[in-house]
Nucleic acid binder design. Structure first.
Length: 217
DNA sequence: CGCCAGGTTGTTG
DNA sequence: CAACAACATGGC
């Protein structure tokens, strides 16, 4: 008997406790600056450890670049050098400025007030914002109810016997969403718990055949 | 030294 | 549509 997604959530919450994500530099949730910091972090952490992102975020903050207009205006080369420790720095400098420019046309408030699917389609227009990055922004910065799928989420659910974990992003995300209460806090905690559990048990191959925490009963 | 990291894009079959 | 290369630094 396999655990339902809801049971997975509750068991992980019991095991790890509330994660209280997204990790912000100055623990200032709900502010306008926090929204942009979340989006910048989401782009910087693409295929990159969060520890590398932390080598860069304070630098950007000190340079006054954690606001859309400033980030959009700074010279490309300057930005790429500042974010070098985060890896793929030329690519990410471009992605960050694409997103910053995008915000001048679609402010956070607009994206928050329209429907989740509508905001999602707009975010995906930005070169450098794919499905997971878009969903992290939607869920943690804009308050939309989406289920974020990352590599850990796939590995964990696959290990639990869910062959749906091999489906395309949207199919898998929607399939999980349909089995959860669409509560913002649950969805935020769920993804945070996926990362906590993934880092602990699904980082290096071979991945466990049987999950060390999640057992059916 | 090799593998991995809270992916995304562009190219090719 | 699936598979693949490229991006690239830092930690272990």
């Amino acid at each position: 008997m396999v655990l339902s997604p809801s049971q997975v959530y509750h068991q992980l919450l019991e095991h790890y406790g509330p994660q209280d994500w997204w990790p912000l530099l100055h623990n200032q949730r709900g502010t306008l600056g926090a929204q942009f910091e979340i989006a910048v972090g989401a782009i910087l952490t693409q295929n990159t450890s969060w520890s590398n992102v932390l080598l860069v975020l304070p630098t950007l903050a000190e340079a006054g670049l954690l606001e859309p207009a400033a980030l959009a205006a700074v010279e490309r080369k300057t930005l790429s050098e500042l974010i070098r420790p985060a890896g793929s720095f030329n690519q990410k400098a471009r992605y960050l400025q694409n997103f910053a420019a995008f915000l001048s046309q679609h402010p956070f408030d607009d994206l928050s007030n329209q429907s989740g699917p509508s905001a999602r389609l707009k975010l995906l227009q930005v070169t450098g914002v794919g499905p997971e990055t878009a969903d992290c922004i939607l869920l943690y910065a804009l308050g939309h109810r989406v289920f974020v799928v990352d590599a850990y989420t796939r590995r964990i659910f696959f290990a639990l016997g869910y062959k749906e974990a091999t489906q395309g992003y949207t199919a898998f995300s929607n399939w999980i969403s349909a089995q959860l209460k669409p509560e913002i806090n649950l969805l935020q905690e769920f993804h945070a718990l996926m990362v906590a559990h993934g880092k602990t048990n699904y980082s290096k191959k071979p991945y466990p055949m049987l999950d060390p925490v999640l057992r059916s009963r």
